[in-house]
Design a protein around this nucleic acid. Structure first.
Lengths: 129, 129
DNA sequence: ATAGAAATTAGAATTATTCTTGCACGGTCG
DNA sequence: CGACCGTGCAAGAATAATTCTAATTTCTAT
């Protein structure tokens, strides 16, 4: 376990939460993490899972993703990307931009606007194939 | 008051909620609407405000907008647009696309993907000027 | 080793939203 | 005109995700 990641001091709990997200990149909720992590940390509390996730988010190590008013989900992909929610399967998929596309360029914003964060979420159905 | 809008039968409460949203386009929350509408409907209940907003959303008459995990906000602008949240003032602004831009075209999605809904939210600061 | 700081735990508290129940209203059909 | 019926409304209870609190444990630096 590294001593820290992006300036965030690692603890056993933070490390296991982080590791779990890196290994299972299916955008779990805090509760999903709580359930899954019990194998490794049987005594962890849900509040700690929330604390760890928040710490990781605030240090830019993971991203928090919201769909409508559902539970927040967490994503270790730091590339600029959006999320597609497949209604059929309920799964969530990362969506990247085509090369050379800068989202700010295609929006009408007052010149000088400072954008600190962009969130793109799509809902629909993936092809059946 | 029209008998119905987009197939939704109008009632006094639904009409006043709708009218309020059309007149004050600052993305109020359900509770904001509840407070503001008391001038006209002193006896309306918060549950009814929620019911009316839900009915209007489901009939496509208004849109529900979510920022992080804050209370949902409601928006009568049916044009395709995103939302910019100005950290300085806390206000929310509609953001349109530059002409000719189709968001689906700039994203990497499996061919045949059906998109039913897109949500774009930006956070940042508007220029001081 | 030890003091002080930070993290964890367990459970209570909070907040937005939804649900439940009983009542009121509007329209319809005799 | 009056009983009926479906829908909407009001009030408050219930729910669910998240945050907070207080007490304990673990770290870190000295």
């Amino acid at each position: 376990m590294p001593a820290e990641i992006s300036g965030l001091r690692m603890t056993r709990q933070r490390w296991e939460v982080y590791r779990l997200l890196m290994e299972q990149r299916d955008h779990p909720t805090a509760n999903d993490v709580f359930i899954r992590i019990k194998d490794r940390l049987p005594n962890i509390s849900l509040a700690t899972v929330y604390n760890c996730l928040e710490a990781l988010v605030q240090h830019g190590v993971i991203r928090q993703v919201n769909f409508e008013r559902e539970s927040s989900r967490f994503c270790p992909n730091l590339e600029e990307h959006g999320h597609f929610h497949d209604k059929r399967s309920g799964t969530i998929h990362d969506v990247t931009f085509k090369p050379g596309v800068n989202l700010a360029d295609v929006l009408n914003l007052p010149p000088g606007t400072l954008i600190t964060d962009i969130e793109i979420t799509l809902r629909g159905e993936l092809p059946v194939s």
